[in-house]
Computed example of a mutant assay.
Amino acid sequence: MAQATLKGNPITLVGNQVKVGDQAPDFTVNKNLMETASLKDFEGKVKLISVVPSLDTGVCDAQTRRFNEEASKLGDKVVVLTISNDLPMAQARWCGAAGVDRVVTLSDYKNLSFGQAYGVVIEELRLLMRSIFVIDENNKVQYVEYLSEMTDHPNYEAAIEAVKKLV
């Protein structure tokens, strides 16, 4: 179990953290209430995975909008995924209201498969900790950022540079 904070208060992260060079663990998340997706669905693409606690918060909103802007510049060989525990219909509603149309939103609400596999489940809140993963077309982890404070922004530039080196 790793430690992090929410506004300076300790929180516990559960699951297996990954590191650069690891084979990316598979996961099952929801595209909608009935349809699922896994890492295999994005095979052959470079994957930038942006993990947020909830799209309805300021930093998560800004993070998702930023990666949506960048997605159009990264080309067809790249897919940008945003994973949270928001319900799929809430994700779809938020994307429509925010004009976010280049990021694929996926929900880990059902069984925390992604969160456990990547070590980002916040035990006390049943949310996912803000983090970034870049996975190459062969599903090898090329970039990882686990934030230690939930309300901090990730290093957008470093994540985008990691993607650009792969395309």
Results as ranks from 00 to 15, higher is better:
residue 161 E to N: 13
residue 160 I to S: 03
residue 75 G to S: 02
residue 157 E to C: 06
residue 102 R to Q: 06
residue 141 V to S: 05
residue 138 N to I: 02
residue 74 L to I: 00
residue 53 P to Q: 11
residue 45 K to P: 03
residue 10 P to K: 05
residue 128 L to A: 08
residue 79 V to G: 01
residue 143 Y to R: 02
residue 91 Q to A: 15
residue 157 E to A: 12
residue 3 Q to K: 03
residue 14 V to Q: 15
residue 43 E to A: 15
residue 163 V to D: 00
residue 82 T to Y: 02
residue 154 P to V: 13
residue 31 K to Q: 11
residue 161 E to L: 06
residue 41 D to P: 06
residue 82 T to P: 02
residue 30 N to V: 05
residue 59 V to T: 15
residue 30 N to T: 09
residue 11 I to D: 09
residue 113 S to V: 06
residue 89 M to K: 11
residue 147 L to Y: 06
residue 90 A to H: 15
residue 74 L to G: 02
residue 58 G to A: 05
residue 79 V to W: 01
residue 39 L to Q: 05
residue 138 N to T: 11
residue 108 D to K: 10
residue 59 V to M: 09
residue 72 S to Q: 11
residue 34 M to W: 06
residue 131 S to M: 12
residue 156 Y to R: 04
residue 143 Y to K: 04
residue 96 G to R: 12
residue 85 N to S: 12
residue 135 I to Y: 14
residue 103 V to N: 14
residue 21 G to D: 13
residue 37 A to N: 07
residue 160 I to H: 02
residue 87 L to Y: 13
residue 46 V to H: 01
residue 166 L to S: 01
residue 47 K to D: 02
residue 98 A to C: 11
residue 157 E to V: 00
residue 86 D to R: 13
residue 165 K to L: 09
residue 58 G to N: 09
residue 100 V to L: 13
residue 57 T to E: 12
residue 102 R to Y: 03
residue 13 L to S: 08
residue 165 K to C: 09
residue 148 S to Q: 03
residue 15 G to C: 12
residue 45 K to V: 02
residue 149 E to R: 10
residue 44 G to C: 05
residue 27 F to P: 08
residue 4 A to I: 06
residue 162 A to N: 06
residue 105 T to K: 02
residue 82 T to Q: 07
residue 33 L to N: 15
residue 115 G to N: 03
residue 72 S to R: 12
residue 81 L to G: 01
residue 77 K to F: 08
residue 10 P to I: 00
residue 51 V to M: 04
residue 8 G to M: 05
residue 30 N to Y: 11
residue 59 V to G: 14
residue 44 G to F: 10
residue 94 W to K: 07
residue 148 S to W: 00
residue 29 V to K: 10
residue 144 V to M: 07
residue 123 E to L: 02
residue 161 E to I: 00
residue 136 D to N: 09
residue 157 E to L: 04
residue 81 L to A: 03
residue 51 V to A: 04
residue 114 F to D: 01
residue 109 Y to V: 09
residue 60 C to W: 15
residue 21 G to C: 11
residue 23 Q to Y: 15
residue 59 V to Y: 07
residue 99 G to E: 13
residue 91 Q to P: 12
residue 38 S to M: 15
residue 63 Q to H: 14
residue 50 S to F: 04
residue 143 Y to V: 03
residue 108 D to M: 10
residue 34 M to R: 10
residue 146 Y to S: 01
residue 63 Q to D: 09
residue 17 Q to R: 14
residue 109 Y to P: 05
residue 133 F to K: 00
residue 32 N to I: 05
residue 59 V to P: 03
residue 80 V to A: 08
residue 137 E to G: 03
